[in-house]
Amino acid sequence: MNRGIAIDALTKAYGDLDVLNGLNLHVDRGEFVSILGPSGCGKSTLLSVLTGIESADSGSIAIDGQGLAGSGSPFAWMPQTDVLLPWRSVSDNVALGYQVAGRVRKSQARKQAGELLGTFGLREFADSHPYQLSGGMRQRVALARTIAQGRDILLLDEPFGALDALTRTELQLWLDQIWGRERFTVLLITHDVREAVLLSDRIYVFSERPARVVGEFDVPLERPRTMSMLAGDQAKQLELDLLRALHVGSGDTP
């Protein structure tokens, strides 16, 4: 049996506008998978279907071979902006995940949040408020809040898209490190080819709307990942293949 998440023939249209057209993909337990697609490829529609904000017209989502019937979304969503609540301290923001998604009592949620911040190396910021943190630090807290939801799959929606290039790289390596330790199941949505190569085990390439999978690539790099790996031949070739699949620079021939 296929363990993990399986999305089968997912279709969604708004009136005459086909947004998702028979989408198939799967993510194994403990796997880091990226979806790489052009802007406006129906990514946000996929997100709202996966997180249960909207329902699909047809198709199915199964986890460990079981349908989702009524058990709520298995996805913990991390939005592009951190959306930390400014009136809550860092640990209370993280506790929100346990409290709301985990239905844990507030005092218990706080305790768990404190422990999680510890494993993330963020303990000293537990009592700070979001405005006291830099953008990169806020995204780290947002990731902790996502994990605190205790869901099966992390759905990272361009989590580093709003950061400057240096901080983004720093956070990508940090995420790789955390992932190497905890082995969450991750579905990362991005339009950054290097980010997808640096972080993923496997990459799906999406077409423009209506979204369907036009390519699937394994990433042949070891863990933990380093920046120098990106300079290697394997990574360079993969980046080129991904760009081709995205029809970027399709004019130049090898």
């Binding site: 190396g121 963020l122 630090m137």
Partner: peptide
């Protein structure tokens, strides 16, 4: 390597 407990970003 990035230090996980990096504090450089904190004001």
């Amino acid at each position: 390597m990035v230090n996980v407990s990096s504090t450089t970003c904190f004001l």
